[in-house]
Design a protein around this nucleic acid. Sequence first.
DNA 1: GGAATTACGTCAGTACTGTTGACGTAATTT
DNA 2: AAATTACGTCAACAGTACTGACGTAATTCC
Lengths: 177, 177
Amino acid sequence: MTDRSSAAGKPIRTAITDEDGIDFAIIELFFFAYRDFTSDPDQILADYGFGRAHHRVLHFVNRRPGLTVAELLDVLKITKQSLARVLKQLIDTDHIVQVQGLRDRRQRELYPTAKGRALALALARPQSRRIRAALEDSGTAERASIERFLEAMVNPELRAQINIVPAQTSGKKNGDH
Amino acid sequence: MTDRSSAAGKPIRTAITDEDGIDFAIIELFFFAYRDFTSDPDQILADYGFGRAHHRVLHFVNRRPGLTVAELLDVLKITKQSLARVLKQLIDTDHIVQVQGLRDRRQRELYPTAKGRALALALARPQSRRIRAALEDSGTAERASIERFLEAMVNPELRAQINIVPAQTSGKKNGDH
DNA sequence: GGAATTACGTCAGTACTGTTGACGTAATTT
DNA sequence: AAATTACGTCAACAGTACTGACGTAATTCC
């Protein structure tokens, strides 16, 4: 082993570059940035026996309280089975509750509990800190550019999902309780 | 099922917002952006029976030809065993070759073959296209800001890895040739 | 009202990527 | 010669994802 076995291709000793108009610089930066971006919450999650999947579910249930299982599947782009285990654990551990839909009683609306809200915040905190620090490094004025860039990286058809976000009008969407 | 079982916490019906100073907007954008960023190569990889791990190995071996297994482990931040399977497949399929180190014959220097170089380029092409499109959307002048931001998102201690890159990143970082 | 469809839960089986721990070997260093 | 290093490999296991199929309750369609 270890040597060029006769049949194998010859080693190319020159590095790939941005020659062909391929933007390796940003490709690589994106990889490193995302890796470290997820590393903070990953450590917290480990204490709960949770993984990254739990985080995503928790995040979106907190962001869009009352979304249904089908909507969640659509946002996460995973299958029912993949979600099932993770969601079950979050429900069993009292981070999320299901409420029967009013309009359609087949639907399960998902809501965070106080516990689930707290965990979501705890997980987001280090990420937000990292973002703030990065923005400061590059000048606060750049924030809009970054947002535009990231949004433009998303598939156009799917960009709708992003804007479903709760418009944060302090929303008394329903004044009941 | 489906109802609030007595012991469970009460559902919180208000969406989490950027109130607590948490930057949910960018957190979410980053998730969506990365999800779609990796989706293009994932489809190509499927044709080869490869996964995302193969892509990463292929990428870095092309970027830093001659790096050793230990260096690769350090960049990817995974364990030897995780790398082993993936690397073996890439070698068996003649995308990567190992060459005994000259200085230290225990080391295996990793190089892409022509086949491996071609695949790396094919995988990077759609990603680069997506990046270019996104940059155009946000104005080409923003490129530097994006790079700075992404780099600032990386853990400071690990930022060194980025700059090991084969010089002449996207141009003017150093004025050679 | 009965049939089709929908929303969900769940069971079975599988794949990929990641982990830890241990052991072996060749090469280098002390 | 002994210790260490770089790597390969074996075993066992975990987390997350997938496909396909089946069941049930609720809604919609005719």
